[in-house]
């Protein structure tokens, strides 16, 4: 199961105008939900299905396919050492970008998220994947992540409590997405 901010599901991921991104808020409007994960990650050595609609590949494979003019999946997964800017030519075609956290103490993904939202202007679903702890999710949301696929998924009540704790923060250019979590 995924935890996700409502209204950023794959069906209407572009519903929020780009201006919202430019002004620093993260696309969303509303509640956190749990939903099924329709997407599949294909490791680099696995054959890809015909239909790429819900297919995720590594950034390396994605860029290789782009280089070879092959059809592109709509999902990509960034490892900590990958570059976000390499995706800048393709972000319009992407519906899902996953940021992998192999261990929760590796903080590179926060910068990935921030750069994807701010630098590339990516407004699709941005999903944190891997070893993610409940007490970190507030910071992930503020960096631009809007869904979570965790090894140990926290319950939604705890997430709601943790992400609602701070009314104020010292970095106004990293806002919590529209106080969405309060109304979960």
């Amino acid at each position: 199961m995924l935890l996700q901010l409502k209204n950023t599901s794959e069906t209407d991921h572009r519903a929020v105008p780009d201006s919202a991104v430019e002004s620093g808020s993260i696309p969303n409007s509303g509640h956190f939900i749990e939903r099924e994960n329709n997407w599949t990650f294909y490791p680099d050595d696995a054959a890809l299905p015909e239909d790429h609609a819900f297919t995720i590949v590594s950034a390396t494979r994605f860029l290789e396919r782009a280089h070879n003019n092959e059809t592109l999946p709509t999902g990509v997964c960034l490892r900590p050492a990958d570059s976000t800017t390499a995706l800048s030519d393709y972000q319009q075609q992407l519906k899902l970008i996953c940021i992998e956290f192999p261990v929760y103490t590796d903080g590179r993904g926060y910068t990935h998220a921030r750069l994807l939202r701010k630098r590339l202007g990516y407004s699709g679903e941005l999903r944190a994947v891997g070893d993610i702890r409940a007490d970190q999710m507030l910071f992930m949301l503020r960096s631009g992540i809007d869904s979570f696929d965790c090894i140990n998924q926290p319950d939604i009540a705890l997430l709601k409590q943790l992400t609602a704790r701070f009314e104020h923060n010292y970095q106004p250019s990293y806002p919590l997405p529209d106080r969405a979590i309060h109304s979960m």
């Binding site: 903080g107 921030r114 910071f139 960096s143 010292y170």
Partner: peptide
């Protein structure tokens, strides 16, 4: 102090 306090991007350096 204020900028660095619980900075979302730089808490897991």
């Amino acid at each position: 102090r204020q900028w660095s306090t619980l900075h979302p991007e730089f808490n897991w350096l």
